[in-house]
Design a protein around this nucleic acid. Structure first.
Lengths: 220, 220
DNA sequence: ACCAGAATTGATCAAATGGTCAAGTGTGTG
DNA sequence: CACACACTTGACCATTTGATCAATTCTGGT
């Protein structure tokens, strides 16, 4: 039986040996649950979220939810892993092929679009990392670190080629992450203080240029 | 009887009419509880923190804790309000009297020192704001907004005097907040990726200059 | 020494909540 | 039709946990 490496709990096999067509109905419900769970976990955290709430938001009963995910923790990890790839993707596509200025602008724009379009994902990871990343520390230490190391090498190379002003690559990344994710994680505060949201196209563009100016002015 | 505006629950009178000397013993325990609670709430959030844990960390029994604070929620609000002033202080002292460059450098440095010396406070507020600031929305909309508005006016004046390059003051503030608080809120990630902590003086100075460079390069 | 009130706690309660189970419903296949 | 199996749920259980209370100890003032 396949076992989830994070929880040690068994996870339902998607493709049973009989090659039975993947139960699309069940798969759809599964996705519905994951969507609902993402919203709840991002809003109130792991401890603050009740299975009842997720079940209600997904439109089914609590036992039925537990039919798809054996425990709250397993569901939480499932949400985390499902969202992770999508979240790391922008960084992966920051490679050394293009022009530094263009690459950084593109990366910032994508990160800001993510902050606008998937604020729940941002908050979920923020909550998780802020609490010591109990479920993600392994991923951070391996996957994320690997991508970051690669990116750092790219940035360093650009610097040695004189295409980028010298500036610690780690701090550069942190600044991009911090400034872009801030608009998702602290959206409440941003809205209370400015009255604007990233969903407002004008505000989005204004924010994008502000972040780009700070970062690009630093290294280009 | 004095009533807490946030919880509606009565709070112990610090100065009773009889002018009895403030019970320093009780006051000390109270502080000890608040300290322990800050640590716990910052680590695991409101819902994830058990009164047991706080009591244990403060070195007393759970009923005794509830003798000082009538409910978990009241304790949470008490921690929040006690920490708030300290947290807002750096921004208050960013006034128009001094040189823009010096003022911003000073503010960033203080914020980064706060991120190093009071990471719990940073995480506590981050958790609270990220979850929609249910307890702080009033404070944000009034107190914080007032200070921010004042600061925005100062920055705007500097810009109109030509002492600062034009750049949206709100975004400038957000960038300072985001980049400085990032090193407290995401300390786990920063440490996993760089192996360093703000407690390392060299790393602190390096970070400080990186943040200053980004912000000052933007407006000076 | 005495007393009033602060401080402290073991025992206990009631509610919330994650999780189980047996029983039922639907559905595709031989 | 019948069978197997995915799916669904109401009722229920066990544990956790915030909160209460009666009873006891400590402490400062007279």
């Amino acid at each position: 039986m396949r076992v989830d490496t994070c929880t040690g709990l068994p996870s339902p096999d998607r493709a049973s040996p009989q090659l039975r067509a993947v139960t699309t109905a069940g798969e759809a419900t599964r996705e519905r649950i994951l969507d609902a769970a993402l919203g709840c976990f991002a809003r109130t955290g792991l401890a603050g979220t009740r299975l009842d709430a997720i079940a209600r938001e997904a439109g089914l009963s609590k036992p039925n939810l537990l039919y798809y995910f054996r425990s709250k923790n397993e569901l939480y990890v499932a949400v985390l892993t499902r969202t992770l790839d999508m979240w790391l993707e922008p960084l992966r596509s920051l490679d050394g092929r293009s022009d530094p200025r263009e690459a950084l602008t593109h990366y910032i724009t994508r990160k800001l679009e993510a902050a606008r379009d998937q604020p729940e994902a941002s908050r979920l990871f923020a909550l998780e990392v802020m609490q010591g990343a109990p479920m993600l520390s392994a991923v951070i230490a391996t996957d994320l670190k690997q991508i970051v190391d690669r990116t750092v090498r790219v940035l360093t190379r650009w610097q040695s080629e004189g295409r980028l002003k010298p500036h610690d690559p780690h701090h550069l990344l942190f600044q991009i992450w911090a400034t872009t994710q801030h608009y998702a994680d602290f959206a409440t505060q941003v809205e209370q203080l400015t009255g604007k949201t990233l969903n407002d196209p004008a505000f989005f563009e204004q924010t994008r240029q502000a972040v780009c100016a700070a970062v690009l002015g630093l290294v280009v």
